[in-house]
Each structure stands twice: as structure tokens, then as C-alpha cells.
Design a protein around this nucleic acid. Structure first.
Lengths: 139, 139
DNA sequence: ACTCGAAATTAGCCACGGCTAATTTAGTTG
DNA sequence: CAACTAAATTAGCCGTGGCTAATTTCGAGT
């Protein structure tokens, strides 16, 4: 059995990067530094920096000037982040929150929702989906 | 009409400080640097620093070695923050999330919930309160 | 009034995650 | 195949918000 990876809490920034990288790979087939930078509205230099860090943390494999791919660990993590993002978006959508506000708030809060809380919100969302009368009462 | 205050986005840190300061004032009648530090689990030096900044931003009045009081602006802001915190806590409580998890998650996410989202969650919470059968379905 | 300990402050440091400017690389194109 | 341009990288900077260590202030008690 190989050495365990140190837990190393993932910062909100790390999660944001992974989320966008996965999204780019899913939609374009690859994630270049310039695309990540544009998507996150930050400079290419900042992206290069972070990508090197994520490589060091084993979340992606990166070759200078060549490109990057997510590792298994990185992809698994990114998928979980994306799923959490989608769940929160669906939830707020059901509550009738405006799309712009949803986007803004989810981007902020998603990094702070633990698995148990997420499961609870998921259960609630599912109930809400099959109770249009209840949803109507929320306006 | 006096000069308008510059919007100046309040950081999560600023909100945390104001929240604790109001809580201390409400429970002990005053908020000393040492109490704020203990409550936030950070050093007294960090608190002194931030308190000076909050004074500069007009959220509290601070006199070296003497103490501090919230300004009207600071108190109003702190009350809104506290209310948002309570609302989120109540909501997750109704969902059956564990108290420890609630505390942790609310502390993280509270700073990212905008007023419209908060209102939507409030409305939902109120419906949930009068539907024990629905609540039961969430377990 | 003095002393002494707790509280507060200052000075100087650090990591994070941004930035710009300058440089290097790679790929396309004439 | 040489040159040009877009992409990427490096170097060096900045603000935020923590920290420790050293110093200063305050106030209580003898």
C-alpha cells in the first residue's frame, strides 16, 4: 500500500480551479491556461502558478508549455465539486431565486457545504420537486 | 445630507468580527480584545489590528487600551449578520443536520448568502415548520 | 503610592492568491 | 525555414489576515 496522501484541506480557490478545469475538459476536450484564466476572470500568470501547485498536490499532471490532465484523484474531486454545485443550483432554482443571484451565491457558498448538509439539502430538493403546491407557497 | 459612505464590500473576516462583538456585548455587556480573541480562537494581536481597521471603516469606535463600542452602522450590520446566521441555523436544524455540522457549515457559508436567497430560505423554513410530516420525510 | 500581572499594542514576520511586466516557447504562416 | 504571434512562464510585487515576541498600559491590592 503506497503512502497515504496528507489530508491537506482544499481551499476555495483550489476547488474553483478544479471545477472550471473539469468543465472545460467536458466542453472543449482540454483545458489550456488561457481558457482557465478567461473562465475564472483572472490572469494567465495566476493560473500557471496554481496549476503548478495542483500538480504538486497530485490533483493534475502538468507539463510546462504542453498542457494538463486531471489525475484520478483530481477528477474524482472535481466531479464531487461539480455535483455539489449543481445540487445547490437546483435547490435555489426551486426556491425561485433569480438566476444571477443563484450563480453568485452558489459560487460563494458551495465550498462550505459538508457532505451531511449536502445530503439533507438533496433530500429536501427531491421532496420539493414533487410538491408543486408547496413550491407555489414560497413566492 | 452628509457624504455617502463608500460601499466597501465587507469581507468574511469583518463579518465574523462584528458577529462576535455583538454577541459579546449582548451577553457580557462589553467586548474586550481578549474576549474577542478567545471567541474567535485567534491571537489578541490580530484582534487589535482588525479592531483598528473597523474603527477606520466607521463600524465601531475604538479608543486605545480603553475599549470599543459599535457605531449605529456597525450595530445594524452586526444585527443583520446575526439574523442571517440564526436563520441558516434554524433551516439546517429543521433538516435534521447534526449540531456540530450546522455550526461549521453556517460559519462558512453565511457570508455568501445574499438577501434574496436568504428570504427564499426563510420562506421555506416557515413552511417546513408547519409541515412535520414533510420534515419526517427528510430523514 | 508602588508594584505586579493581565490586557493591549507594536513590530516584524508568513502564506495565500491575486496582479503586471518582461521573457520564453511553440506553432503557424508567408 | 524564418519570422511572427499567441500562449505560457517567470520575476517581483501587493493586500488580507493570520502569527509570535517584545513592549506598553492599566488597574487592583498591599
Amino acid at each position: 500500500m503506497p503512502a497515504k496522501t496528507i489530508p491537506s484541506r482544499n481551499s476555495a480557490a483550489v476547488e474553483d480551479y478544479l471545477e472550471r478545469i473539469l468543465e472545460l475538459i467536458n466542453t472543449k476536450g482540454y483545458a489550456r491556461v488561457v481558457d482557465i484564466a478567461t473562465s475564472l476572470a483572472i490572469s494567465q500568470a495566476s493560473v500557471t502558478n496554481m496549476v503548478q501547485r495542483l500538480d504538486g498536490e497530485g490533483l493534475l499532471q502538468y507539463e510546462k508549455y504542453r498542457g494538463l490532465v486531471l489525475t484520478t484523484a483530481g477528477e474524482t474531486l472535481a466531479r464531487n465539486i461539480a455535483r455539489r454545485h449543481q445540487l445547490l443550483t437546483d435547490f435555489l432554482k426551486l426556491l425561485g431565486v433569480d438566476d444571477r443571484v443563484i450563480e453568485h451565491d452558489v459560487e460563494g457558498m458551495e465550498h462550505h457545504i459538508s457532505p451531511p448538509t449536502l445530503r439533507a439539502i438533496e433530500a429536501l430538493t427531491n421532496q420539493l420537486k414533487r410538491r408543486p403546491s408547496l413550491r407555489a407557497r414560497l413566492k
